[in-house]
Amino acid sequence: MFSTLLQNLFNALQWGSFYSMIALGYCLVYGVLRLINFAHGDIFMMACYFAFFIASWFLGNLAGMPGPIIFGLTMILTMVATSGLGLFIERVAYRPLRKKGAHRLYVVITALMLGFILENGNLAVLGASSRRFPDMFGKIVFQFAGVSLTNYKIIVIVTAVLAFALLNLIVNSTKIGMAMRAVSYDKFAIPLMGIPLNRIITFTFILGSSLAAVAGILFGMSYPVLDPYMGMIIGWKAFIAAVVGGIGDIKGAFLGGFILGFIEIIVVAFFPSSYKDLIAFVILLVILSVKPTGFFGVAKSTKI
């Protein structure tokens, strides 16, 4: 009984980590631009593919390298590539709309369409067959007290917590983080302080995309089958998790991811797994209807 509980706890933390890292990306862009970046789930999907190609290349060409170094290099390059994609989307799709003062409806629709374009672009270029993510360093299974825990799971959870700690530090203790918080409160006055608004937006997209990149590699390692539509459901779930936790605040989005992770695992422990999403979302709906600002939602004005 206790071992089942512990096993479920680790699974919940692992899935919570994935949701949280993706949820933070929604939260950051929403905070700064008031834009729900519906393409973010597909940016995560693309990150998985970037990581797949980068890791495969390293494993093919630097065969002697120790796994952790390949992992580290893959991480950095995937973050760069995914940030590039995020910035490209910002530049060619969102910025022109912003410049024209387009209604938010058009911006949200644009985000949705970008998601489809990424999915189908990937399908067109790489074909329908799904790919297997390479194993960068061997999976080690630890057995204790009837619980099996892999080194991968530990890496996922530790990385998610570290990534959040770093993000929290950036947002709350640096100059650019202060500017991000200011933008989330009042965009209008930012240029009046001599601050280039676009630079802050660029930085925000880099942060959100990098988090998606980290999530992408770790997800690929943990669930190695990649397909172009893998980002859709997980992206929506992470978005819902962000809102339930309180999209107004990075802490809310982060914890929201874990709330969803826990709910899902608990539901699976007691019901047939086909009930998982049904019951999980009913619970989330109830949480939202009780607390429409999100679980950790604070006053309306704070948005990061």
Partner: peptide
């Protein structure tokens, strides 16, 4: 248009960007 979520001091610090 002050930044209500920042402290008074933070508002001033942010505005010192051009002369940082």
């Amino acid at each position: 248009h002050i930044f209500g979520n920042l402290s008074v001091m933070e508002n001033l610090e942010l505005a010192s960007y051009p002369v940082r």
